[in-house]
Nucleic acid binder design. Sequence first.
DNA 1: GCCAACGTTGGC
DNA 2: GCCAACGTTGGC
Length: 157
Amino acid sequence: MTRKYWLMKCEPNAYSIDDLERDGSTGWEGVRNYQARNLLRDEIRKGDLVLFYASNADPSGVTGIAEVSREAFPDPLQFDAKSDYYDPKSDRTSPQWFSVEISFVENFAGIIPLDVLRQTSGLEKMELLRKGSRLSVQPVMKAEFEIIRKIGKTKRR
DNA sequence: GCCAACGTTGGC
DNA sequence: GCCAACGTTGGC
């Protein structure tokens, strides 16, 4: 079983790497895209590593690393009528949406901004850098992950 | 706040 | 099954 690598996006005013460092772990909830759902449900395994990405930020970029600590479980928000992520088409016998739990690994001292990623050789094929790419959960190659982790290390406190 | 690129919905 | 209209994402 080889470990896989992922990138997960979140707006930092909703949840940041600092929040994850404080909490230790969190459920990755509220994903409402079928392609991302399929990855959460079928592909992402305990022990996989995650690049934590701040979207809609100033600047946007990778802010740290997390590890998957629990595999797919039904996203509780889909059953909560008061949640923005409520889905009336879901029921508990056949849930539509899934979450994983991630745990804190590393908080880069500074964000690695998108434009730096764009200028880094070896990352040219990253899904994140593809024009029009919007997937909030996406696969990352091991080599890409290692390059970004190395850049993050040089920034680590 | 703008808007391009995507994804989803629903009429036909 | 096509595709126009609408909604969302996310960089800038």
